[in-house]
Amino acid sequence: MMRKKKLLVVIMAGIFMLFGCGSVTDQPVKSIKIGISVYDQYDTFVGQMMTAFNSYATQKQEMTGITINVEIYNASGSQSTQNEQVESMIKEGYNVICINLVDRTDPTTIIDAAEKNNVPVIFFNRELVEEDLGRWDKLYYVGAEAFESGIMEGELAAEAFEEREELDKNQDGIFQYIVLEGEVGHQDSIVRTEYSVNTIIQKGVPVEKLGYAIANWNRAQAQTKMSQLLEEYGDKIELVLANNDDMALGAIDALKAQNIPQKDWPAVVGIDGTDVGLEAVRDGEMIGTVYNDKEGQAASMLELAYTLATDGDISSIAMMEGNTIRLPYIKVSAKDAGAFTPPGAAGY
């Protein structure tokens, strides 16, 4: 009798032990979390794209009633920081992760972590190589065709050279130019430089390269580099081909700092069409820029992220080609800058 009781107690204890650990809570269904890691939050283009993304997210959640939480992390130029951020995002249960790669050649850690935990990843702005993108079917890319921007920049420069004779300061019929390049080895800077120069030549404008400088997409660095180049070549510079607007503005800062009158400035062309860049084009400080549709990219990325998080049909998203969305660039020259309005917000 007693032994039976004892046995019962032991069994009860066992059952108690077994059930002690099982408690599972359900996740609220009505919200999605999007985590974003940007290579550097001080990058004007990326910063503005994030602002656009945020405001679209706010609009989207008002429209759908589904809470969209957007958390933006700053990798501050370190791939290992970015990898850690991705890991913590996965741990915190983000539905979709958007990555603006620091080192576009090294997405392995991120892809592996995402694949292991089945979290879709959208890469944006800094394009990874096709082989990496093809490693898993839940990797996506949102961006633009890099060479297109180079071509357009070249076209802008060539058109300006043909239309405004005063740009050929020494009247030798040759466009003397310098290039302000982005990061070393960055695909965009290589492609943009390459295609813009080639396009100018194709358009029948003879060019002469005076020099180049690497300014890491950074306005202050570009200003320094431009000052050095100005010191070296002075008046000889007729064209500044900047890989992005920030650097173009840096060049302008340098010109301003040396108190050179605006009419003697070389032609400055940028890419991206950031707010300040467009402003500079309107003011005639830059002869043009190539508008990189950040609003469009932000909207597409949001749409894609939202669709992925809600298990929707991604093929319905506009401009979806395979796993990539590429938005077109738009040329903005000094003439039409005043009338230019960013097209991206069409859907909203």
Binding site: A215, A220, T224, S227, Q228
Partner: peptide
């Protein structure tokens, strides 16, 4: 320099 004048700087010199 000894007087605090900038001789050279990288990457930003302004």
């Amino acid at each position: 320099t000894n007087e605090g004048m900038l001789v050279a700087a990288a990457p930003v010199a302004n």
